[in-house]
């Protein structure tokens, strides 16, 4: 490994090592629990990043897809009696399929219309799950049991870690692939992308299906970890949360969703003592972020690094000029 590669991937590798050892460094059960949830939500936030950060379509339905994944898994294991892993894969595929159907309708609209349509869809899913007793167990919710192996918290931690890495890998590959180029073209300039031969509707729908698949995956993991499902797993507040995580971390960046989710989610957990006030602080942070740091933490750091680089160049240039004189 070259020195440059080491610098490039050093932080990532160090973080990965810490993540792998985490359950063995005397971390409390409570803390590990919080981290598992943050990991699950970060997958959902990455799902939003694909459709919102890279493709520019603000979906407020990610909470619904999270719920569809979770309830899909519950139904397929409890009612259909399928093997857990098969059920999980199917649940994610079903979520992507629902995404396809909703996408076909919703992508006929754009901008604010699209936001409102997706939010309405989320609302419908929530109300249906709450009221359709046979399907969901209604407000009482329902139990869900994973394979015995994942009864232990540590095992679930590694499972979530694995899927976080998978979601990261998908985002990373997409962001530098030909398919991802199409996403960014649609995000940055739709009419131009259209004139350059990019099928906009198709591109949006592909992005949305990938996004829904990941949201469904997060839902499955959430259901497995909690062991219990209630309609709040499909609440539209979840969609709001994911947007907040993404914006704080930085939309359209690889690590933004991860950084944002962990920062906000952990901060909120630690602020539990101050009760409901934390959501006020949260709301205020959100407003300030959008106005003053529209690129989020990761985007901001990137800008800072670019600025430092040019600043250093300038200083070096000045020095050279002085030496010359």
């Amino acid at each position: 490994m070259t020195a440059e590669n080491l610098r490039k991937y050093g932080v990532f590798i160090a973080a990965l090592v810490v993540a792998c050892l985490l359950p063995y460094i005397g971390i409390s059960k409570f803390m590990l629990n919080v981290i598992i949830y943050a990991g699950i939500f970060s997958i959902a936030t990455m799902s939003l990043n694909i459709i919102m950060g890279y493709t520019g379509q603000v979906s407020l339905a990610q909470g619904a897809f999270y719920g569809i994944g979770a309830y899909g898994l519950a139904l397929l294991t409890n009612k259909a009696g399928l093997n857990f892993w098969v059920a999980m894969l199917l649940a994610c595929l079903i979520t992507a399929l629902v995404g396809l159907l909703i996408g076909l309708l919703a992508f006929r609209t754009r901008g604010p219309y699209f936001i409102i349509v997706t939010l309405c869809f989320n609302f419908i899913v929530y109300v249906v799950i709450k009221n359709w007793d046979w399907l969901s167990g209604g407000v009482r919710g329902q139990k869900i049991a994973g394979p015995e192996f994942f009864a232990g918290r540590d095992a679930r931690y590694y499972l979530v870690l694995g899927f976080v890495l998978l979601a990261l890998f998908i985002t990373w590959r997409l962001s530098r692939s030909l398919e991802g180029l199409g996403f960014m073209a649609v995000r940055d300039n739709e009419p131009l992308a259209d004139a350059l031969g990019i099928n906009i509707t198709y591109t949006k729908i592909v992005a949305f299906m990938i996004s829904c698949f990941l949201a469904g995956l997060a839902g499955c993991l959430g259901a497995l970890h909690t062991g219990y499902l209630s309609p709040s797993s499909a609440h539209y507040m979840l969609s709001f949360n994911f947007i907040i995580y993404l914006l704080v971390g930085g939309a359209g960046t690889l690590y933004g969703p991860l950084v944002g989710t962990f920062t906000v989610y952990l901060a909120l957990e630690f602020m539990k003592d101050i009760g409901e006030y934390r959501f006020m602080i949260f709301g205020a942070i959100l407003i300030l972020t959008v106005i003053y740091f529209p690129r989020g933490i990761v985007g901001g750091l990137k800008s800072l690094r670019r600025w430092l680089k040019s600043f250093r160049k300038k200083i070096a240039g000045n020095k050279k000029a002085e030496e010359g004189a």
Binding site: L174, L178, L196, I210
Partner: peptide
């Protein structure tokens, strides 16, 4: 990247090609 986007319509790689390049 601007150029690459403009060339995108002549390529065939899709989402799965991006995972297994």
């Amino acid at each position: 990247v601007n150029m690459a986007i403009a060339r995108r319509m002549r390529t065939h790689s899709g989402f799965f090609d991006s995972l297994v390049p």
